[in-house]
């Protein structure tokens, strides 16, 4: 039990049954505090469904999940206060300025006006957003929106941040920069839970799980996975796994 404190997400036998098919078939895994955990899988493998159950916007039909020390089923309010979430759409309000977006999202997490003010200053300095505080988010390039969305998800200093395909549709340089932000945040002790399609990004993670057809088929560090499958890249690990299933 001495290790339990370090496990910030504990999932046991988590299942999601829809009317005609089972999207998530009793998965079990844990995520350690402060690690970057890659949650991989092809489209339709069930990774988004699994993630939605962890962040409390979808109810599981079986099994348990404990996030940041709270049960997602019975203590969803406490869970919500302790997690951040960034969706693949970098969802912010296009017709609000950068400043207004920060104020709004800070506000719904119950940050005080003073906290919001200092946070905004920090954020603008950190991202070098300087003179765009009064620019509408809709006028920003995609890469900037993405960085901003990440920072907004971290406003209330959550213990874990869930990133759902955060780098979809941006160029390789911006992706690289974004991963630097992720590293910086992980360095501060925040746990990062990230889903992605890009296998090169999987290499950046501390540990990686690969979901196929609602089941976790592999879970380890990228290095060990490559050794296990005797290949040179995560891409090949992924392809080998998918082929084996077929």
């Amino acid at each position: 039990m001495e290790n339990a404190q370090e496990k910030i997400i504990i999932v046991e036998n988590l299942t999601k049954q829809f009317d005609h098919f089972t999207a998530v078939k009793g998965i079990s895994f844990h995520v350690n505090k402060g690690e970057i955990f890659g949650f991989l899988g092809a489209n339709g493998a069930g990774k988004t469904t699994a993630m939605k159950m962890l962040i409390g916007i979808s109810n599981s039909t079986g099994g348990t999940a404990n996030v940041a020390g709270f049960d997602v089923h019975t203590q969803s309010e406490e869970v919500k206060q302790n997690i951040g979430y960034m969706s693949q759409k970098f969802s912010m309000y296009d017709d609000l300025t950068v400043q207004e977006n920060i104020t709004f999202f800070g506000g719904i997490y119950g940050l005080s006006r003073k906290q919001i003010k200092t946070k905004t200053e920090e954020l603008i300095a950190e991202l070098q957003l300087g003179n765009i505080a009064k620019t509408k988010v809709g006028d920003l390039p995609l890469g900037w929106k993405q960085k901003l969305a990440f920072s907004v998800a971290l406003l209330h200093e959550p213990k874990i941040v869930f990133l759902d395909e955060p780098t979809g549709g941006v160029d390789p340089i911006t992706r690289r920069q974004f991963w630097e932000l992720i590293y910086a945040e992980a360095h501060k002790g925040t746990t990062i839970f990230v889903t992605t399609h890009y296998m090169d990004e999987a290499e950046y993670c501390n540990r990686v799980s690969i979901m196929v057809d609602g089941v976790i088929e592999a879970l380890d560090t990228p290095k060990k996975l490559k050794e296990q499958f005797q290949v040179n890249s995560m891409n090949e690990v992924f392809l080998k796994l998918a082929r084996n299933i077929e």
Binding site: K80, S87, S91, D94, I108
Partner: peptide
Amino acid sequence: ELGTMEILLVSPL
């Protein structure tokens, strides 16, 4: 449509 509803539902609201 914008996906902000998801963000709002994940928030403590």
